[in-house]
C-alpha cells in the first residue's frame, strides 16, 4: 500500500511535467494540425540555457539565495526558448503551411535533430550536473510517503502554468483569437484576426511552457544533456493524444494519467512478470499507451477531433 501511494505521488510529479509539455503539442496541433516534433528539443534547450545562466550568475553574483538563481535561470531560459520557438515557426513551418501531407512532418523531424546537433556543439556531449537549488531531502507527507521540495515545486509550478494558460485561452481576447484560428483559419482572418501573429504566439507560449518543464525535469533528475528532450517530448505527445489532441483539458488529464500509469507500471512490472521484465522497461508504457489509444480510441479520452487526419 505504501509503495502504491509513493508511486502515485511520483506519478503525479512526472505527470504534471508531461501535462505542461503536452499543452505545447496540443495547442500547435489544435491550430495547425502539425505535430511539432521539435517541441521536446525546445525543452532541452530551456534546461541547458538555464544551466548556463545559473552557472553564470553564480560566478558573477555569489551569495544569493539558491531560489534566486533558480528564478534567474527560468527568466533567461523562457525568453530564449520563446525566440527559438518563434524562429522555428517562422523559418521552417510557415512556408509549408499549405504543403500536403508529409512535408511539414519531415521538416519538423529535421528541425528536431538540428536543435540536438546545435546543442551538442554548444554544450558538448557530456551529461552536465544541474545544480540542486531547491532542497532534495525527502519530507514525509503522510505515513511512509515521501515527497521532496523539488517535487512539490514541480507540481506547484506546473499547476500554476496550466491555470494561467486556461485563463489566457478562455478569458482574454488573444485566447479568443486563438480559439477562432483553431476553429477555422480563413473565417478567423476574415473576422480581423491576424492569424499569422496568433500562430506565432502559440509557438511562443508553448515554447515558454516547454522551457519551464525543461528546468523542472533537470532539477528533478539533477542532470541535463543534449538528448534529454526526446523522451519527455515523445511522452508528452502521448499524453496529448491520450487526452484528445487539440484539447487543453485533455492534455492535462492525459499528462497526469500517463505519469501515473508509468510510475505504477515501473513499480510493479517486476512482480507482474515474475522478474522477467524490470523497471528498465518503464519507457515502453508510453509507447504501448500511444499505440492502444490511437488504435482503439483515436479521439483520446476527452477529444472530439478525429485523429485520422494525415
Amino acid at each position: 500500500m505504501q509503495t502504491l501511494l509513493q508511486q502515485i505521488v511520483n506519478g503525479l510529479v512526472v505527470g504534471s511535467v508531461y501535462a505542461v509539455v503536452a499543452l505545447g503539442y496540443t495547442m500547435v496541433y489544435g491550430i495547425l494540425g502539425l505535430i511539432n516534433f521539435a517541441h521536446g528539443e525546445v525543452l532541452m534547450v530551456g534546461a541547458l540555457v538555464a544551466l548556463s545562466a545559473i552557472t553564470f550568475f553564480q560566478s558573477v553574483l555569489p551569495d544569493l539565495h539558491p531560489i534566486a538563481y533558480f528564478v534567474m535561470g527560468l527568466l533567461v531560459a523562457m525568453p530564449v526558448c520563446m525566440a527559438v520557438g518563434y524562429t522555428i515557426e517562422r523559418t521552417a513551418y510557415r512556408r509549408l503551411r499549405n504543403a500536403p501531407r508529409l512535408a511539414p512532418l519531415i521538416t519538423a523531424i529535421g528541425v528536431s535533430f538540428l536543435l540536438q546537433t546545435l546543442a551538442m556543439i554548444i554544450w558538448g556531449r557530456n551529461y552536465h550536473s544541474f545544480p540542486q537549488l531547491i532542497q532534495t531531502a525527502p519530507i514525509e507527507i503522510v505515513a511512509g510517503v515521501f515527497m521532496t521540495p523539488v517535487q512539490m515545486t514541480t507540481v506547484g509550478v506546473s499547476a500554476a502554468m496550466m491555470i494561467g494558460l486556461v485563463i489566457l485561452v478562455t478569458r482574454t481576447n488573444m485566447g479568443r483569437a486563438m480559439r477562432a484560428t483553431a476553429e477555422n483559419h480563413r473565417v478567423a482572418s476574415l473576422m480581423g484576426v491576424d492569424t499569422n501573429r496568433i500562430i506565432a504566439l502559440t509557438f511562443i507560449i508553448g515554447s515558454a511552457l516547454a522551457a519551464v518543464a525543461g528546468v523542472m525535469i533537470a532539477s528533478n533528475y539533477g542532470v541535463a544533456h543534449y538528448s534529454m528532450g526526446f523522451l519527455p517530448g515523445l511522452k508528452a505527445f502521448t499524453a496529448a493524444v491520450l487526452g484528445g489532441i487539440g484539447n487543453l483539458a485533455g492534455a492535462m488529464v492525459g499528462g497526469i494519467v500517463l505519469g501515473l500509469v508509468e510510475a505504477i507500471g515501473a513499480g510493479y512490472i517486476e512482480t507482474w512478470t515474475g522478474g522477467w521484465l524490470n523497471s528498465s522497461y518503464q519507457d515502453i508504457f508510453a509507447f504501448l499507451i500511444l499505440g492502444i489509444v490511437l488504435i482503439f480510441r483515436p479521439t483520446g479520452l476527452l477529444g472530439e477531433r478525429v485523429a485520422d487526419r494525415a
Binding site: L34, V241, I284, L290, G291, L294, A307, D308
Partner: peptide, 19 residues
C-alpha cells in the same frame, strides 16, 4: 497501425523502433 495515416503512423512506428 492499419487505420493510422501520416503523422500518427510516423509516431507509432517511431515508438515501435524504440521498443
Amino acid at each position: 497501425t492499419l487505420r493510422l495515416r501520416g503523422d500518427y503512423l510516423a509516431i507509432v512506428t517511431l515508438g515501435f523502433g524504440e521498443i
